[in-house]
């Protein structure tokens, strides 16, 4: 399976407006100055608290991040003289700053707002606490900047294990998914699966907002799994636990017969357990995927049936040798 050449989309930047749009409800955000700069780009998925910069130390000032102003910064600014404050802010504004974000409904001095208005640097005000602001913004930015790709595959939640079924067109991915749904499992996406790296360690499979849980079955046409089977048989996203590739039974190929060794496939830099399943008339692929998912869960719980059987056999042989 070729997962190395997937076209990977990674955002170079996001406008401050997107952050406002997505986080306005959660953080109760409003723009109180610099509205004309709402399209300014955020390039880095991190934040900065500019305490030292306000104090006049501008070496290593992480100016390219969203600057969070909490109690410390706002009250520090309040006890500066007007002349000092202006000089310190001039120092900060000599750098390109994407935006300021104030927590706890803190109102800064008019001079600060004036300077942001003149330079078109948006100032966002949140009613929530500083730690809530910081954790939400970092998670939001990490999610926005994470690499994503779209793959021709089918994703099903089978016993809680996200199974990504891949294989050539016409091999029976959709039919396998349909049978899994019929057997009580849940469809995530058919044919077009968006894959997104999450927090550097897992891959989330998502349905596309255009097609949602529609599926094309050759001979019938387009059906909607949510309408036919109900909302309990679909999910919008699921973490990928297992990649199953279906291929036409090849006499020359060597298929895994013991399950003692494990294969992995690399998707967006994340290692996912991988199984190659040969398809032949009379093989019920849905049941094979089901048992693969259950076996995967067993392994995650630390139970490895193939290794245990082998160990038992070796113990038995050792005893026989002693006798």
């Amino acid at each position: 399976m070729d997962t190395q050449n997937l076209p990977v989309n990674r955002k170079e930047s996001i406008p401050v407006a997107r952050l406002l749009d997505r986080m306005a409800d959660e953080l109760e955000l409003e723009v109180i100055a610099g509205f004309q700069g709402i399209g300014r780009p955020v390039l880095i998925s991190d934040i900065n608290r500019p305490g030292l910069a306000l104090g006049g130390y501008l070496d290593y000032f992480a100016n390219d991040r969203i600057q969070i102003l909490g109690n410390t910064e706002i009250h520090y600014m309040e006890q500066l003289s007007m002349a000092e404050l202006e000089a310190r802010l001039e120092g900060i504004f000599a750098f390109e700053v994407p935006a300021f974000l104030l927590s706890r409904n803190l109102r800064p001095q008019p001079l600060f707002l004036d300077m942001c208005n003149r330079r078109g640097i948006p100032v966002l005000l949140s009613k929530t606490t500083t730690d809530e602001v910081i954790s939400s913004i970092i998670l939001f930015l990490a999610d926005e900047f994470s690499p994503e790709t779209v793959i021709h595959a089918t994703a099903v939640d089978c016993y809680g294990v996200g199974c990504l079924i891949v294989g050539a067109p016409g091999i029976g991915k959709s039919e396998t998914a349909l049978e899994l749904v019929e057997r009580g499992h849940r469809l995530v996406a058919d044919d077009v699966v968006s894959l997104k790296k999450q927090r550097g360690e897992s891959i989330m499979a998502e349905t596309s907002p255009v097609i949602e849980h529609h599926m094309e079955i050759r001979g019938i046409g387009i059906i909607d799994i949510k309408s036919v089977y109900g909302v309990g048989r679909v999910r919008n996203s699921e973490r990928i636990g297992l990649v199953v590739e279906l291929e036409e039974w090849n006499e020359q190929a060597q298929y895994d017969r013991t399950g003692l060794s494990e294969s992995f496939v690399n998707i967006l830099g994340v290692k996912a357990p991988y199984l190659l399943i040969p398809v032949r008339p009379g093989r019920n692929i849905a049941i094979i995927v089901e048992v693969a998912a259950l076996n995967h869960r067993l392994k995650e719980l630390g139970v490895h049936p193939a290794q245990e059987l082998n160990q038992r056999l070796m113990n038995l042989m050792n005893q026989t040798n002693v006798d």
Partner: peptide, 20 residues
């Protein structure tokens, strides 16, 4: 088929539809 950086397989109806 690629549109706005999204690439889909032209042998998949669903893929083509997501291009909108």
């Amino acid at each position: 088929i690629q549109k706005n950086g999204r690439e889909v397989n032209a042998k998949s109806i669903m893929g083509l539809l997501t291009l909108a």
